[in-house]
């Protein structure tokens, strides 16, 4: 059966997928782009590796469909599963810090404020940052998630998210300035 997914809400898509596996394709198609990008951003892995993780993520989403509660935005729930799966998938590997050029530009443009940031030197800056702050930067400035959404994704109180975002910005700027000066 072919479904018209465009008119359906996330909750309706979940209900449909629980009745018919084919309808799960709607969820996959809707989220695979953003989730693939997110996996790459937080793990720094290659496109192929990220796709392997993404497959695992969708299988996990499918098996946990009954765990979804409509009180939570579906997108946050899906991001949470993606984050947890990615972390456990790469737990044994060394954390990667490579970031796409385009992401670096966006990141430095959003956080950079008054300083001119050299794009080609972002990796050493990110290398100096705590993993949790780097992840917060990705969610806040690249995925453009609200504090509430980040709270639901990383499962921390909103207050903590606010604090971490500020610290992450400060840590990023301090690390950048320490390495390359004010200009």
């Amino acid at each position: 059966m072919v479904y018209d997914c465009t008119e359906k809400t996330d909750a309706e898509l979940v209900a449909l997928a629980l009745e018919d596996q084919e309808a799960f394709l709607c969820i996959i198609n809707k989220f695979q782009g953003p989730l693939l990008r997110y996996i790459k951003r937080i793990s720094g892995v290659s496109h192929d590796d990220a796709q392997d993780v993404l497959q695992e993520v969708f299988i996990k989403i499918y098996t946990h469909l009954h765990d979804y509660k409509p009180a939570l935005p579906f997108s946050s729930w899906v991001y949470r599963i993606t984050r947890n799966t990615t972390i456990s998938y790469f737990r044994k590997k060394k954390p990667l810090i490579h970031m796409e050029q385009e992401d670096m530009e966006r990141l430095v443009h959003t956080i950079g404020e008054h300083i001119v940031i050299k794009n080609d030197v972002i990796d050493p800056v990110l290398k100096k940052m705590d993993k949790k702050y780097r992840e917060i930067l990705v969610l806040k400035f690249l995925e453009e998630k609200s504090y509430e959404e980040i709270s639901d994704i990383i499962q921390k109180p909103i207050g903590t998210v606010g604090t971490w975002v500020n610290r992450a910005k400060k840590q990023f700027l301090a690390a950048y300035k320490a390495l390359y000066g004010e200009k």
């Binding site: 596996q21 799960f24 394709l25 996959i28």
Partner: peptide, 9 residues
């Protein structure tokens, strides 16, 4: 990718 996931399922 979608079809691959469905096939695995």
């Amino acid at each position: 990718l979608g079809q691959k996931v469905l096939d695995t399922i």
